[in-house]
């Protein structure tokens, strides 16, 4: 499964980021979300949702072999990860995130909760 993005439909509401962090961290904090929203204002006047496309570059880049594709998503293993940030740099789409409170980078696990609250169709499940 993947997430299909239609950037013209994104309104920048951050509901996706809220439900993401509620689901994964038991708190409301868009700064820990595994989905990004780039606000392109004042020009050209769009939001650009940024989601993992599962290209695998993070797995290739990880120097300690902490990232593997498992099930529906790439997973960062906490025990191995040194939080070196190389995967964040290597991600060509800017969809691996960091937060000072977390021991590892943040990557989407494709739980799809975000697609359930999006009311515009900007992010939808793509089989």
């Amino acid at each position: 499964m993947k997430i299909k993005v239609t950037k013209e439909k994104c309104t920048g509401c951050k509901l996706c980021q809220q439900i993401c962090t509620i689901t994964h961290y038991n708190e409301i904090n868009p700064k820990k979300a595994a989905i990004g929203i780039e606000a392109q204002f004042p020009e050209p006047g769009y939001f650009l949702p940024k989601v993992c496309v599962q290209c695998g570059k993070c797995e290739e880049a990880c120097p300690v072999d902490a990232i593997h594709h498992e099930g529906d998503a790439y997973v960062i293993h906490k025990d191995e990860c040194t939080n070196c940030g190389i995967c964040v740099e290597a991600c060509p789409f800017g969809v691996i995130f960091t937060h000072a409170d977390l021991p590892t980078p943040i990557i989407c696990d494709f739980c799809m909760k975000c697609t359930e609250v999006c009311n515009t169709g900007a992010i939808v499940v793509e089989d």
Binding site: C13, K14, L15, Q18, G45
Partner: peptide
């Protein structure tokens, strides 16, 4: 150009 929401608004 685009629809623009406030925080958390659907």
């Amino acid at each position: 150009i685009s629809d623009k929401a406030c925080f958390g608004c659907w």
